[in-house]
């Protein structure tokens, strides 16, 4: 077993949630129960996309207490590197796939007197599992959910049923927006804040919380960066003695793995720090896309997170 050990699964159902989102169900191939997990956990799904093996993290949205199947919801991203397109176009019921064990980089702080959850769009998925967990604990919670329109608001009926008046919705097509300052000013001491959604929403929430004097320990966010597509480049792996080409729609980490070099990871989204790699030499520009390295570390150019970052220039040598 290793940190990146996987589970063989069968796609047991594919459900079209709305025009942009599909839900995928997985059961264990051997018929056993899947491991239990905690609300906020994700799995990394392996996709054999032609020549390319992709590994992309998705939040588990099903009940952490239901181990018969795992569910993830994936929004189609027509601009991305192709992971969501592959899932939407190629994955059908009955297919055999491989997923990682669940890991949680967005856990609930169970000491909280109150949990204030803020979701934007597909960022609702970790909160589906978390609200299920919190409901079982009879915890005090409030969910604020911003989406474009009722039609695109995934799982609104389910959330209405489970949360009732504790669910607050905001439809941007109807010019409804969360008033962060108002919301964050009226929370009692001991409240913990969780936000998951598009970057502007996370930034607005964090800016408001910090300027109002919320302590960092009470602020939690899930910020999966995406590895954007970009110009191909070549990396030299010093320890392995290999030279590897990173394709337009491939991440550095995927290219390293494709070359047969094992690299540790948990999130593949620039947040957990596990794949941090030393830069031994470079002539060009490191394109940092992660939320792990500090700004001064990025400026020094001695480390890079190959799961999301890229490179432009003549030569890049990594310690791998």
């Amino acid at each position: 077993m290793s940190i990146n050990a996987g589970i063989d699964v069968i796609v047991s159902d594919v459900v079209e949630v709305n025009s942009l989102i599909k839900r995928f169900h997985f059961k264990r191939a051997d018929g056993q129960q899947l491991p239990a997990f905690s609300g906020g956990a994700h799995v990394v799904i392996e996709m054999e996309d032609g020549e390319q093996r992709r590994r992309t993290p998705y939040s588990l949205m099903s009940s952490p207490f239901d181990t018969t199947d795992y569910q993830v919801s994936i929004r189609r991203d027509d601009e991305g590197r192709g992971g969501s397109l592959y899932m939407h176009r190629e994955v059908t019921t009955g297919m055999a796939m491989k997923i990682s064990y669940p890991a949680n980089l967005f856990p609930l702080d169970l000491r909280a007197r109150r949990h204030l959850l803020i979701a934007g769009g597909i960022g609702i998925t970790p909160f589906l599992a978390q609200t299920d967990q919190l409901n079982r604990l009879s915890a005090d919670l409030e969910l604020h959910y911003g989406v474009r329109s009722p039609e695109l608001g995934a799982y609104l009926p389910e959330l209405n049923a489970s949360l009732g008046h504790r669910l607050h919705t905001y439809y941007s097509d109807e010019k409804q927006f969360i008033d962060y300052d108002e919301l964050l000013t009226r929370q009692p001491v001991g409240t913990h804040l969780y936000v998951c959604g598009p970057s502007p929403m996370i930034d607005a929430t964090l800016n408001s919380a910090r300027s109002l004097g919320w302590p960092e320990a009470h602020i939690h966010f899930e910020h999966f960066a995406k590895s954007p597509p970009g110009e191909p480049f070549v990396i030299e792996l010093a320890n392995s003695g290999l030279s590897v080409e990173v394709g337009r729609e491939q991440s550095m980490l995927e290219a390293i793995e494709a070359a047969g070099v094992d690299a540790p990871y948990l999130c593949r989204g620039g947040a957990c720090g596990q794949c941090e790699t030393k830069v031994l030499e470079y002539d060009g520009e490191l394109l940092h896309e992660d939320h792990w390295l500090e700004d001064d570390e990025k400026a020094r150019g001695q480390k890079i997170m190959p799961c999301v970052s890229r490179f432009r220039g003549k030569r890049l040598v990594l310690e791998r």
Binding site: L184, T185, R186, Q187, P188, V189, T191, L193, A209, L212, G213, W214, H218
Partner: peptide, 10 residues
């Protein structure tokens, strides 16, 4: 006093 506090109190 702590009981009555709102988040954002330094």
């Amino acid at each position: 006093a702590l009981d009555r506090l709102r988040m954002g109190t330094q």
